[in-house]
Simulated scan of single mutants.
Amino acid sequence: MEDSVPGSWSKRNALLAIAIGGMIAGALDLTQACILFGWDIPLSIAAGLIGPKALHGGAGTYVLGVSLHFVIALSAATIYYAASRKLGFLIEHPLVCGLFYGAAIETVMNLIVLPLSALHARGPYELHDLLQGLLVHMVVAGLPIAFSIRRLANNPMRAIKP
């Protein structure tokens, strides 16, 4: 029956899976960041785009930071979805793959995104902070994305299996 699903329905499922996974991951990650580092963390996120002056910004800068955070989370969900279309094990093993994906998100943010941001954030990092970041992103980002894609997106591998 999967093969007879119209293209628009399949696209709607993909967008729903990406939106739910990205929004849950974004909400959990932003909440934990605010709890751990303070409620002005969206200003730091905005500073990654517009520079250190954002750290003293107002409501507009705060909203920009929150928006950027969710753009990043939705982008991460989109990447996982796209990869899952070719790599069936991402759908078949969401627990393990989600944990690894969360660690990959944290690693990319620390080694590529933050150094290239307007803040040019680079280490040295404390081991405790690195481990905490990895574990948090494995759970609050990787798992919601992996499980939403598994649950809500059409699985292209089902049509292949007997």
Rank of each mutant, 00 (worst) to 15 (best):
A47H: 01
A47R: 01
A47D: 05
G48A: 01
I50M: 02
I50W: 06
P52E: 13
L55Y: 09
H56K: 15
G57Q: 07
G58W: 05
A59R: 13
A59M: 14
Y62Q: 08
V63P: 08
L64F: 10
L64H: 06
V66G: 00
L68R: 11
L68D: 04
F70L: 08
V71G: 12
I72M: 04
A73I: 07
A73F: 05
L74H: 14
L74F: 09
L74P: 07
A76N: 11
A76T: 14
I79F: 08
Y80K: 09
Y81I: 04
Y81P: 04
Y81A: 02
A82S: 15
S84A: 15
R85V: 10
R85P: 02
L87W: 14
G88F: 07
I91Y: 11
E92N: 15
E92P: 07
L99F: 11
Y101T: 03
Y101E: 01
G102R: 07
A104N: 00
I105M: 05
V108Q: 00
N110V: 06
L111H: 10
I112R: 11
V113R: 02
V113T: 12
V113I: 10
L114D: 00
P115V: 03
P115Q: 09
A118K: 06
L119D: 04
G123S: 12
P124Q: 04
P124E: 02
P124D: 06
L131T: 06
Q132A: 07
G133S: 11
H137I: 00
M138S: 10
A141E: 07
G142R: 11
L143I: 04
L143N: 01
A146E: 05
